[in-house]
């Protein structure tokens, strides 16, 4: 299934372009295609050049890469990741701290990126779902999620995985009940909870992280 994966990696905001994907299948009239993505965020953040009243500069390290942004002070870390850095792996489920879909690790701790202004992250190290794996392999938690089928639609999944990585690091969850309690900030409406538990237990048991 590498092809499906490749196809979508192309369309996802890093690397190459939407055009390749869209031209795979010709549509009547063709030529319907979204423009190539801007990957170099240090050039221009979309929209921010226009009438932003209160711009803020912020430098943060996102998945190991230093990013300097000038953003509207209102931009949350979540929207900075999704809309400015075009890293949509981190999801927006509620925008109010009520679902956990936006969970990322800031300086190693799991937090809700929807309730953090990007401007508050000056000097912080942010790890998102896109930055968990090193190289081509999957992070052990990601691999365990695949193995245990710990998702369905996949929308809560990046948040669940980042949260699970944070949970293991925190080291407060020993029993199933404790894992469940401390993962309760991540809602999965598809209901993959049992499989998420299995995945976390496996990673925790073999001390993979």
């Amino acid at each position: 299934m590498d092809d499906l994966q490749n196809q979508d990696e192309k369309s996802s905001g890093r690397g190459s372009t939407r055009r390749e994907f869209l031209t795979q299948i010709t549509v009547a009239g063709a030529g319907l295609s979204f423009a190539p993505l801007i990957v170099n965020t240090e050039t221009k953040v979309p929209g921010s050049q226009l009438s932003v009243i209160q711009p803020v500069n912020v430098t943060m390290v996102v998945n190991g890469t230093k990013q300097t942004l000038t953003v509207d002070s209102r931009v949350t870390l979540l929207d900075a990741l999704r809309d400015k850095l075009m890293m949509p792996g981190t999801k927006k489920g509620c925008d109010h701290g009520q679902c956990g879909a936006c969970t990322v690790l800031v300086n190693g701790r799991r937090i809700n990126s929807c309730l953090t202004f990007a401007a508050m992250c000056e000097g912080d190290e942010i790890t998102t779902i896109e930055g968990l794996a090193h190289g081509d392999g999957l992070h052990p938690m990601q691999a365990a999620f695949v193995k245990h089928d710990a998702f369905q639609c996949g929308y809560c999944t990046p948040g669940q995985i980042c949260s699970a990585v944070g949970l293991v690091k925190e080291g407060h969850a020993k029993t199933d009940t404790e894992i469940r309690e401390l993962m309760s900030g991540n809602i999965c409406r598809c209901g993959a909870y049992q499989n998420i538990l299995e995945a976390i237990k496996e990673v925790q048991a073999v001390k993979l992280i």
Binding site: G97, G100, T103, R109, R110, I111, N112, L115, T116, S163, G166, L167, E170, L182, M183, S184, G185, N186
Partner: peptide
């Protein structure tokens, strides 16, 4: 109170 993430914040 809240969730592990929110308590971290």
């Amino acid at each position: 109170g809240a969730s592990a993430q929110l308590r971290n914040m």
